[in-house]
Design a binder for these strands. Structure first.
Length: 437
DNA sequence: TTTTGAGTTGTTCGA
DNA sequence: GTCGAACAACTCAAA
């Protein structure tokens, strides 16, 4: 009888250590073939063939492949549509079971259901594990068994439920001997997939305790390095959220809260999938968003005349990253000052953010626009000028991205006047929401 | 069932 | 300059 294999399917968990699904695959004992699929359902939709995220993934996969090669194994990388690829894989190998980690986004759920169904029809087991969050879906619920929709009580329950054992790393290394022997495997190149290699400064995977301790006080100033910039690593699982939570636990409450927000929005997406494309609170879909292509374009390019907004958008366009404080400022500006649909901003971020995560991005935009669960009240309109005075007083950040603001006597004329735009936003929201159920 | 306190990140106005 | 109230009710969570 031919050799039977187990497969581990990497998706957004690109690491060999402390990886739940991979641990369970290796522990079983049968030789494990690690697999990654460059999914054409996703890649074909990406307009920008110099997408930093594709390069990032490719680079991380290459490192994993190299590490596996040193153990006499390899990473098998496929390119195509998952359903077709899985047919290929099962005709290539005799498979006992497939292991993978949970992926909660709507497309991923649909894909995994289809693959599970297909594998089942071939009598192949499909095992999935929690890996990218600390607590998922139904693990942190209200006393009555329903999901939370408010962050603070959720976070209290989350913290109360946390035990040290949940953050213990999976000892994958103990079972590395169980990787299948593979030879001569080569990873498909970016060029073969019509993508260009983009080298960009990937943030360090490790952060100092000091940053976590000072995070609460430093994170609001975009001119200093007060945030961890670990979003991209959490997005693709190149670090373990368990390890990060373990490091943060007891060191910095504010930092730990950010990880809890991440779990919170993943949980919300699971229980309230209508948030994709719709306001969490239906009545906010009554707001008559303005169609103003010129204003939207000015926002995208960072040419609104408000230096804090413009700096943020230019940072995003140039690096694929934007400081958290500034994300709120630009989101508030788009939805309130310009009265442009939050979904347009959400989509722009989705296209440009290296750390783009559907659940968190959607949650953030709905929070800013006021339409979300536990959102900012609609009359809370950020003043881009006071935000600048408060958080970038010496213009370190703005000067970096909008140098002409420092040098020129007159900067671009603001495309809307703050006071009038603020009043217009509040009045529009008020009228649209009045009397709604 | 009813009640009570609270709710990520703000701004403005007037005393 | 500083401080508190108003902004707008509404909904949530828990007792």
């Amino acid at each position: 009888m031919a050799q039977q294999y187990n497969i581990f399917w990497f998706r957004r968990d690109l690491r060999l250590n402390d990886n739940a699904g991979l641990f369970h695959a290796l522990k079983e004992g049968k030789p494990v073939i690690p697999v990654f699929i460059f999914d054409r359902n996703i890649l074909d939709d990406l307009q920008n063939k110099s997408d930093r995220r594709v390069s990032f993934i490719h680079n991380e996969l290459s490192q994993i492949h190299e590490e596996l090669c040193q153990m006499g194994s390899a990473l098998k990388v496929y390119y195509g549509k998952p359903e077709k690829i899985w047919k290929e894989i099962i005709s290539e190998f005799e498979i006992n079971a497939v292991f993978t980690n949970h992926d909660y986004e709507p497309y991923a759920l649909k894909r995994d259901n289809a693959i599970a169904e297909f594998l089942k029809s071939k009598s192949i087991a499909f095992h999935t594990y929690k890996d990218q969050v600390i607590f998922e879906k139904g693990e942190v619920l209200k006393g009555d068994g329903n999901p939370y929709t408010v962050f603070t009580p959720y976070s209290k329950r989350w913290k109360a439920a946390l035990e040290d054992s949940f953050l213990k790393p999976y000892p994958n290394k103990k079972h590395f001997g169980n990787f299948a022997s593979l030879e001569g495997e080569k990873i498909i190149s970016l060029e073969e997939m019509k993508f260009k290699q983009v080298d960009w400064p990937v943030p360090d995977k490790k952060i100092k305790n000091k940053l976590i301790e000072e995070y609460g006080e430093q994170r609001n100033f975009p001119g200093i390095r007060g945030t961890s910039q670990l979003g991209v690593h959490l997005r693709f699982g190149t670090i373990s959220v368990r390890a990060l939570a373990k490091q943060a636990h007891g060191l910095g409450e504010t930092f730990l809260n950010e990880l809890i927000w991440r779990d919170f929005y993943h949980m919300i997406l699971h229980h309230f999938p209508h948030v994709v494309g719709n306001a969490f609170r239906a009545k906010y879909d009554r707001i008559p968003w303005r169609t103003d292509e010129k204003a939207f374009e000015a926002w995208c390019k960072g040419e609104t005349g408000y230096p804090m907004v413009d700096a943020g958008m230019r940072e995003l366009n140039n690096t694929g990253y934007m400081h958290n404080r500034v994300r709120m400022v630009v989101a508030s500006f788009l939805t309130k000052h310009l009265l442009i649909d939050w979904r347009k901003g959400e989509a722009y971020f989705a296209e440009h953010l290296n750390d783009f995560d559907l659940a968190a991005n959607n949650g953030g935009w709905q929070w800013a626009s006021g339409s979300g669960c536990d959102a900012a009240p609609y009359f809370r309109v950020f003043n881009p000028e006071s935000q600048l005075k408060k958080f970038d007083k010496d213009l370190t950040y703005v000067g970096k991205w909008v140098p002409e603001f420092l040098n020129e006597v007159e900067y671009i004329k603001p495309i809307v006047e703050h006071k009038a735009a603020r009043l217009r936003a509040i009045a529009t929201y008020k009228e649209a929401l009045a009397g709604a159920v």
